[in-house]
Design a protein around this nucleic acid. Structure first.
Length: 589
DNA sequence: GGTGAAAGCGCG
DNA sequence: AAAGCGCGCTTTCACC
């Protein structure tokens, strides 16, 4: 096909975005047959409009170096895109993927190994002013992060498409790349929309637990009281409660024979100081991690804007950076509160990881145990264990590699009843312990063991190896086995969750907008009039929705879960039931 | 004065 | 109740 037919006038399948040698932004349209148009340079102030125009025409897949850097500013100006290909995230997956036949070129492109751009992650998109999109064009080029040049992007995109084509199962791996990239869009949108946060409710929770907000450098009244009680019971008027090493010495001199000051250790002992000390630690944690200082720093205009880091965990789970988005204590859930006239639709998957395991392994007995009901109850009814709690401990032990204690004791029972599922995790552990790599269902692979691990293993097999060397090698092998055992399950569960969110995101975007007067103004232009994702936590989503759409949104959340199950595990009978609730506040029962 | 490790605890 | 996977954050403390 002649190149002229793939110019901006016709519908592009991919649009590659990057900077020219002179530093200006440019787009290259690529047609479905691979024909490339000449780069079209676009002035920074025109960029959002140009992207919106192409988006409207064809919903191309935007190929860019880093979604947080490119999409954040776009969202702030009100432009949403349907799909993208995040070169940085996809590079990370492809360069390690076992299923890729030839990754040599990709691995040689070391510039693409960079972590997310710190600047992009640290600064949530400014919603106030109407910013000139990408006006960073005038700033000096970033020294960290992956390259944002157009030429580099085109070359890397070629390498990635070749690598994908050489994969054993390009369909699956391609789905992973699409899901990972969609996740990056979701993460940027979550930060832009923010979590609707009720500052007064948060303050109420703090005040109820700690007493009124104290002056700076003063402890809250309740902590002072409880601390005094601890010191009285220890008979030590100035016991240092905030320094574990010093507290440990005080505890021991008071006759409490603990080896650490941790909660589990303390709970084993009987002493009148223990109860108030545990209480003190709880209060201290609440104050330092999510107290008034957190509120001041992270909540503005009724929105908490966390920074998510897609692909930030080796297994493919997201991490977060700043604000502790993935560690919001349950105690503060009531502070997640819908805007007036809006509602929160919250859903979490019941026993996601065991279900994913059953599907991967094609374990019919485990699939049946979870069919249409609580999976742990189903395991009890199969006769493998006696109580739901035992079923849960046994499953967690199987997926984490427990060998001792209650959990380790129960695992063999599961092995008899669910041999296929157990064989899958046992095989993953065995491969890892031998130094091999393992992969998720869609093909994300573990990194090869690091050189230090290899060294420990080989030095144990030398003739002069000591018993100590051998023990160290066995321990390192077992540790890696537990990691790879868990990786296949945790990583595949993360893939399921990405597919769930990607599908849900599209369904939500199709909702009709509400009237302007009913908009959720702090959510930003793209989200203020439609239901949108507001929170994500591994196996849980919260949608902020106009009240009138709540039921339809709840149905969409369920439909998306079913769609994710079909997308990953086509013929499998495994289902993914949700605990779903619609309320003004996001509390759990 | 900054840096980094470790302890401890929050989340799945 | 136990000690097995993956994280981030705050604080303390040893060290430079």
């Amino acid at each position: 096909m002649p190149e002229s037919t793939a110019t901006a006038g016709s519908a592009a399948r991919w649009c590659v975005l990057g900077r020219t040698g002179a530093g200006a932004w440019a787009v290259v349209d690529i047609a479905a047959d691979g024909t490339r148009a000449d780069p079209e340079e676009i002035a920074a102030e025109e960029l959002a409009a140009a992207i919106a125009r192409r988006e409207h025409r064809a919903s191309p897949r935007w190929v860019w170096h880093d979604t947080a850097a490119c999409y954040g500013p776009l969202l702030a100006t009100g432009v949403r895109v349907e799909r993208c290909h995040d070169l940085r995230l996809c590079h990370q997956i492809l360069r390690h993927a076992d299923s890729v036949g030839d990754a040599a070129d990709l691995r040689a492109a070391r510039r693409w190994d960079a972590p997310p751009e710190a600047e992009a992650a640290a600064a949530p998109p400014a919603l106030e002013a109407a910013p000139t999109l990408f006006d960073v064009v005038a700033e000096p080029r970033r020294r960290h992060g992956v390259p944002d040049d157009l030429e580099e992007a085109l070359a890397e995109f070629d390498r990635q498409r070749e690598a994908l084509a050489s994969a054993r199962e390009p369909g699956r791996l391609g789905l992973l790349l699409a899901a990972e990239s969609a996740g990056a869009l979701v993460a940027a949108e979550l930060s832009a929309a923010g979590v609707p946060w009720d500052v007064d409710e948060h303050d109420r929770v703090l005040t109820e637990a700690l007493g009124p907000r104290p002056a700076a450098d003063t402890k809250p009244a309740r902590m002072i009281e409880v601390g005094a009680e601890v010191r009285r019971q220890l008979g030590s008027p100035d016991a240092p409660l905030d320094s574990p090493p010093r507290l440990l010495r005080v505890l021991r001199s008071a006759g409490i024979e603990v080896d650490s000051t941790s909660r589990w250790e303390l709970a084993k002992h009987e002493h009148p100081a223990i109860a108030p000390l545990l209480q003190y630690k709880k209060l201290s944690r609440l104050l330092t991690a999510n107290g008034w200082a957190w509120l001041d720093e992270w909540v503005r205009d009724g929105r908490y804007r966390p920074v998510y880091v897609p692909g930030g965990v080796v297994t493919g789970r997201w991490a977060s950076s700043g604000g502790g988005a993935l560690q919001i204590p349950r105690q503060l859930r009531p502070a997640l509160r819908a805007d007036p006239g809006w509602t929160l639709v919250s859903a979490d998957v019941a026993q996601l990881e065991p279900r994913v395991l059953a599907a991967m392994a094609g374990d019919r007995a485990m699939t049946a145990a979870g069919a249409g009901r609580d999976l742990y109850t189903g395991i009890v009814e199969s006769g493998a264990v006696a109580t739901r709690q035992e079923a849960k401990f046994a499953m967690l032990g199987a997926m984490y590699g427990a060998t001792t204690g209650e959990s380790g004791r129960l695992v063999p029972r599961l092995r008899r009843t669910y041999p296929a599922a157990m064989a899958l995790v046992d095989d993953a552990a065995e491969a890892g312990a031998r130094g091999g790599t393992v992969s998720t269902w869609l093909g994300r692979s573990t990194h090869a063991p690091d050189p230090e691990w290899q060294r420990v293993q080989s030095s144990a097999s030398l003739p002069e190896a000591t018993g100590r060397d051998e023990a160290a090698a066995r321990r390192a092998a077992r540790d890696r086995g537990r990691f790879t055992r868990n990786f296949v399950v945790q990583g595949t569960a993360a893939e399921w969750a990405l597919c769930w969110m990607a599908d849900l995101r599209q369904r939500l975007a199709a909702f009709p907008p509400v009237a302007e007067r009913d908009a959720a103004r702090a959510s930003g232009p793209v989200f203020e009039r439609r239901p949108h994702l507001a929170f994500f936590l591994h196996d849980e989503v919260i949608v902020h929705s106009p009240a009138e759409h709540a039921d339809a949104v709840a149905a969409a959340v369920r439909d998306s879960a079913a769609a994710a199950g079909r997308l990953l595990f086509g013929g499998s009978a495994v289902d993914f039931p949700l605990d779903l609730r619609v309320a003004e506040r996001a509390e759990k029962e």
